[in-house]
């Protein structure tokens, strides 16, 4: 039974899937890897590992489904299972700790920010990147997936193996942390943050 259900692609089909559906995402994959590790070699290793795994497990990929999400999930798992273990630099926040702490649904949605949209729009790419890069990896990841790569909540839930509600609350939390960083830049750069706009 399971033999029947398991698709076996021919060599030609495998090649087509690999070249047509997997390889076009190499740019996004590399950028994701780089934003997780901040290291070119580590990012290369992660992407390479991901593609080798993708090839090895190609029979469990359903042709025509979301290859990008499938690849991102493999890369994220490789990062957690392998890269983080051998990394000399311990993760600042324990993954499990973050989970239990932030999994609560009562994320507060208070409007406390004095950061203005206009200040944000005026910021430089480096400031935005630095703010994003300074976030703990779990928060950084949801922002990368949502805002840089355009994944839906549902796709993110699958990539990260977490419920959609957690995706939403973690994103909200991540953006609040990002706002704190951006507010810091705004003050530093002398952007107007808390004054009413003069007419």
């Amino acid at each position: 039974m399971s033999e029947v259900q398991r698709r076996k692609y021919s060599q030609e089909e495998k090649n087509n899937i690999f070249d047509g559906e997997f390889m076009p995402h190499i740019d996004s994959m590399y950028n994701f890897g780089y934003r997780l590790t901040f290291d070119e070699d580590d990012a290369k290793d992660l992407v390479q590992d991901t593609y080798l795994k993708a090839y090895r497990f190609i029979n469990s990929f359903e042709q025509g489904t979301n290859a990008k999400a499938w690849l991102f999930r493999i890369l994220k798992n490789s990062f957690i299972n392998e890269y983080r273990k051998k990394s000399k630099q311990p993760a600042k926040v324990d993954y499990q700790e973050v989970e239990t702490y932030y999994n609560s649904d009562d994320v507060d949605y208070q409007s406390t920010t004095d950061l203005r949209a206009e200040s944000v729009k005026g910021m430089l790419g480096d400031e935005i990147s630095n703010a994003l890069n300074s976030l703990a990896v779990d928060f950084r990841t949801v922002i990368i997936l949502c805002d840089l790569e355009g994944f839906t909540y549902e796709e993110m839930a699958k990539i990260l193996d977490i419920p959609i509600g957690t995706v939403r609350s973690r994103l909200h939390r991540a953006r609040n942390l990002l706002k704190d960083k951006l507010r810091g830049y705004a003050h530093h750069m002398g952007y107007d943050t808390d004054e009413e706009e003069e007419i």
């Binding site: 190499i26 590399y30 950061l115 203005r116 949209a117 729009k121 910021m123 935005i128 922002i143 951006l182």
Partner: peptide
């Protein structure tokens, strides 16, 4: 809404992209 929108916009348009090493695809 406008602040959240601005943040999404700058993330999408201004975050620097890392150039993929040319040999990576061949290596794979």
């Amino acid at each position: 809404f406008h602040l959240e929108q601005a943040i999404r916009d700058v993330l999408k348009t201004k975050c620097t992209k890392q150039e993929v090493p040319t040999e990576l695809a061949d290596c794979i």
